[in-house]
């Protein structure tokens, strides 16, 4: 297990390096036109652009440019030229909000998806199959920002059931206010996944029920409940847990951008979205690289957890 972890961590560092190179290429090499002009944002003066050109070394060889860019991103003094704010500070400020959204939503879709998947697997039949299929298809067919905007307007503003967007700090407004502000965003984001998860779990459970060791468990005279929990559910959950880790990463780096924006949660995602709207490159670059790093890290953790859960993996 120890060797496995070390090997996995080494591979992670290599991928992170490659990710940083690819991000650099995306912003500084692939596009046509003057990189300094792009860095400066929409309303820039020639003087600013010249200063940026010098500071980022855009006249130097490409590998020096790469090093300068990485140094700026990781030293924490990257500046947004559109509004002269420190990019890393802004990101750090948003992190707790983004995590609050992603973790809450992930817990909801995991528990709801698992419960529904297990229920429909036990009640296997045409109706439950249709139910999870329809839920899953609606989930993957709905743009989260559309669903979020409608929910926020109708449930929040019109009916007044929930606050109309915004984020409430626990320290300032208390736990209950915080939860009230988060419920809609959590459920909107979770809606996209609940159907998919219940569908995947349902088919895993039905597959596992066919496995020989489940028959053995029944032959042992175990109660149906014990067979389901110890033998069927545990074995069916492993792929779901892996999927969950991966999706959690994707939500942090993807779905959260749109959800935060629609609900005005002021997290990293919304900061990213606003910078995109301004074509403000430095924050977009920093969030891209940090986001991808985080996903690589999470994938590594998922692999290690997977190995811990399934003894067969460790050997290979």
């Amino acid at each position: 297990m120890g060797r496995f972890v070390v090997r996995r961590l080494a591979a992670m560092l290599v991928v992170m390096f490659a990710v940083s190179v690819l991000t650099f290429l995306i912003f500084n090499v692939i596009p046509n036109g003057d990189p300094a002009d792009r860095m400066a944002g929409r309303n820039s003066t020639p003087v600013q652009i010249a200063a940026i050109e010098k500071e980022w070394g855009f006249d130097k060889p490409v590998y020096t440019q790469y090093l300068t860019t990485m140094e700026k991103v990781f030293s924490g003094d990257l500046i947004s030229y559109a509004n002269q704010t420190n990019v890393v500070e802004e990101i750090v400020r948003g992190i707790p909000r983004t995590f609050a959204l992603a973790i809450g939503a992930a817990l909801i879709w995991f528990s709801l998806g698992t419960a529904l998947g297990l229920y429909t697997a036990i009640r296997a039949g045409r109706f439950s199959d249709t139910l999870v299929t329809v839920l899953a298809l609606i989930g993957v067919s709905m743009p989260v920002f559309w669903l979020g905007a409608l929910a926020s307007y109708y449930l929040g503003f019109k009916l007044g059931l929930f606050p109309n967007g915004g984020y409430a700090e626990i320290g300032e407004h208390g736990l209950w206010e915080w939860v009230k502000h988060m419920i809609l965003p959590w459920f909107v984001l979770a809606t996209l996944f609940v159907g998919v998860y219940s569908r995947v779990l349902r088919s895993n459970v039905l597959d596992t029920l066919n496995d020989d060791y489940v028959r053995t468990a029944r032959a042992k005279g175990l109660s149906e409940r014990r067979v389901m929990i110890h033998h069927v559910l545990r074995n069916s959950l492993i792929p779901i847990v892996t999927l969950w880790g991966l999706d959690f990463g994707l939500v942090l780096g993807g779905g959260a951008i749109l959800t935060e924006t629609v609900f005005d949660l002021q997290g990293v995602g919304q900061y990213f979205a606003e910078s995109v709207d301004q074509l403000d490159v430095p924050p977009v670059l920093a969030v891209t690289i940090f986001g991808a790093f985080f996903i690589v890290l999470l994938n590594t953790i998922v692999d290690i957890v997977y190995a811990a859960l399934d003894p067969r993996i460790r050997l290979s």
């Binding site: 995306i26 692939i30 490159v281």
Partner: peptide, 15 residues
């Protein structure tokens, strides 16, 4: 390692 949306937006901004 890049979620589709993140990669898409990054490219969209840079281009």
């Amino acid at each position: 390692a890049f979620p589709a949306l993140l990669l898409g937006v990054a490219l969209g901004v840079s281009l």
